[in-house]
């Protein structure tokens, strides 16, 4: 290397070069692009989701499922319990779209009426779980210390008891069961995941500088939790809750299938699957309809959770 490298004459390819001023115009430092329309996280997510077919498919499934659950009478062709033993095991026809059961019930109408208990339990259980798990997670994560230790241990305890086992034990003890009872039992052991998610998310928000800035303004801890920490933790909670709604519907159907969920007097997918199972070798296709209805409904919620997660993913949104 030459002694004085600065006085070196430039070598080929390293001559002094200055771009013509008009070629690269230097803009004002840090100017605001005023032509863009303002948008926040939710609007961005909406813009992102709008272009995904999966979002529309999921939305359609959920809308139809909820509509049917609310107004089964508008969609069904006959009452679910008006069965005629003479019409046992008919193949699909214009009168019975999906055929009939062994007892001669119209499978189509039963599938339609079966939506209500599933959707009701799903929605109720999810609401309970979000409130309970959200509160436990948010309080523990935000306040830390002894409160966090106690709430975390409590979460661990409930997490350690196998969900299905606990649900079976409790439900078998109940003299009378309905959608509310099933939802409460599911929620009482299903809140742990959402508590952990909320806690983690509140913990990560808590260390942000805007929270410190709010403290420096003299905002109370509860105020910060409600005004800053929770809104920012909302995204993962919503994503999880959407998926959880689907899995709670699965749980309800499974419990009913086992005979300890919805009572036999209620028309439900789980119950019909249990009945259909008795003649699985004889007419396996009877199982198909309630199973498909159940699967598609759950798929709708899970797909929605997936799409929302992708749209809200901060890594994908990074500018």
């Amino acid at each position: 290397m030459p002694e004085n490298r600065y006085e070196n004459t430039p070598r080929p390819g390293q001559d002094r070069y200055v771009a013509p001023a008009e070629e690269v115009t230097v803009g004002a430092v840090d100017a605001i692009a005023e032509d863009q329309t303002p948008s926040n996280m939710w609007q961005d997510a909406w813009r992102e989701m709008r272009h995904r077919p999966m979002f529309w498919a999921a939305l359609a499934i959920i809308t139809v499922a909820v509509f049917i659950a609310l107004f089964p009478g508008l969609v069904a062709t006959q009452a679910p319990r008006s069965c005629d033993l003479a019409e046992s095991l008919l193949p699909p026809s214009t009168e019975h779209f999906f055929g009939t059961t062994k007892d001669g019930c119209d499978i189509y109408s039963r599938v339609i009426y079966g939506a209500r208990p599933s959707v009701t339990v799903g929605v109720l259980a999810t609401s309970f779980v979000v409130v309970l798990g959200g509160a436990v997670g948010a309080l523990g994560g935000y306040f830390g210390g002894l409160m966090d230790t106690l709430l975390s241990r409590l979460t661990d305890i409930f997490f350690a008891v196998p969900f299905f086992l606990a649900a079976i034990v409790i439900l078998s003890l109940l003299p009378e069961r309905n959608a509310l009872a099933v939802a409460l039992v599911i929620a009482s052991f299903g809140w742990t995941s959402i508590a952990r998610i909320t806690r983690g998310s509140v913990l990560s928000v808590k260390n942000n500088e805007f929270v410190t800035a709010a403290k420096a303004l003299g905002m109370s801890r509860m105020g910060i939790l409600l005004k800053h920490a929770l809104p920012n933790a909302a995204a993962p909670i919503i994503v999880y809750a959407t998926v959880a709604l689907g899995t709670f519907i699965v749980a309800e159907a499974t419990l009913t299938f086992l005979g300890i969920g919805m009572p036999p007097s209620t028309v439900s997918w789980g119950g019909d699957l249990a009945n259909g199972r008795l003649i699985i070798r004889q007419a396996p296709e009877i199982l198909l309809y309630p199973a498909a209805a159940l699967g598609i409904t759950v798929l709708g919620f899970i797909m929605m959770g997936d799409v929302v997660r992708d749209a809200l993913d901060p890594k994908a949104r990074k500018r």
């Binding site: 899995t247 299938f257 699957l273 699985i280 070798r281 396996p284 199973a291 798929l299």
Partner: peptide
């Protein structure tokens, strides 16, 4: 994977019984 999550275990069991078994 979405389908596997959406289908309850007992439904999956029937499907397996009908196809793989019967």
């Amino acid at each position: 994977s979405l389908l596997l999550i959406a289908l309850p275990t007992f439904v999956l069991g029937f499907v397996a019984q009908i196809f793989l078994g019967v």
